[in-house]
Amino acid sequence: MYTQGLDQRAPEGAAKAADDAAALVAFQARIDAEEKIEPNDWMPQGYRRTLVRQISQHAHSEIVGMLPEGNWITRAPSLRRKMILLAKVQDEGGHGLYLYSAAETLGVPRAEMVEQLLAGKAKYSSIFNYPTLTWADIGAIGWLVDGAAIMNQVPLCRCSYGPYARAMIRICREESFHQRQGYELMLKLAQGTSGQKRMAQDALNRWWWPSLMMFGPSDKESIHSSQNMAWKIKRVSNDDLRQKFIDVTVPQGHFLGLTFPDPELRLDEASGHWLHGPIDWTEFNRILAGDGPCNRERMAARRKAHADGAWVREAAAAHAAKRANRQRAKAAE
């Protein structure tokens, strides 16, 4: 599960004014008191809209995120690795379903969200628009991409919206396995032949910067941040999360005997933080706008999977209708 500060539109003022001022004050007081908001409670339109957008983008990311790794299931080098990868990809599908359910509690039908994704109108995490070129990429994704996702998601377990927070708790419990299997895979390659080690280094080189971009734009550019912080939808800033991720990940990479593709990366003794070089946000924006290495391929694969499954959905509905009819006839006898 992978959330990202994807949207840079400012919240609409008109909708806000429509909400009763007193209700807004009472709502904020509940949030400030760390009370959870549940589906049927009153909430400002902007709060609902923000959550629908964030949770559905998050769900789409889980679903699209199955594609780069699914790509390697049939090519896993051993039965053990194949079972692990299958279980991981299945988990990601499950994460997508928990999140769609959470978004549905806000009144948006599942079919509408799926339609938006397939029509190319919905956003999903930029990270899944990069290709998985070698087996080492599966290790790098588990270690770095799931690692970054965990960093992002742990604070979301305390999100003010109950159903989202509960889905996140469930997801976080499952993510740790994803990260550990990835790191273990990298470790095996790093301790292997020189060719295997080269493969691991190449994967780290390609996945490092995209992983850092998963935390979204810098706080200085993120328009949504302050309102979302006040509503306790977001609880830690993008830059703080990114720094935390770098600080825990760099020593893990050094343990593998690998290097990071950032010549400016250095430990600042005074603060104890690993300082990094500038992030290429033009690449990030290009991918979000739909022009990454795999955007078209991912959407095409999603649409094909949905179209190929149409007969299953139709058959299941027809079967259920037949059984219901039979039961009604029996009851009438």
Binding site: L97, Y98, S101, E104, P109, R110, A111, V114, E115, L118, R166, A167, R170, H306, A307, A310, R313, E314, A316, A317
Partner: peptide, 29 residues
């Protein structure tokens, strides 16, 4: 996407984690 609007009904799911404990709401599908 002809069948998109043919939405299956929503179900709430309750799971008993082990015998002796009550079923607990876990989510929907």
């Amino acid at each position: 996407m002809t069948d998109n609007r043919m939405e299956w009904p929503l179900w709430e799911v309750f799971v008993r984690s082990r015998n002796g404990l009550a079923h607990r709401h876990v989510g929907s599908l």
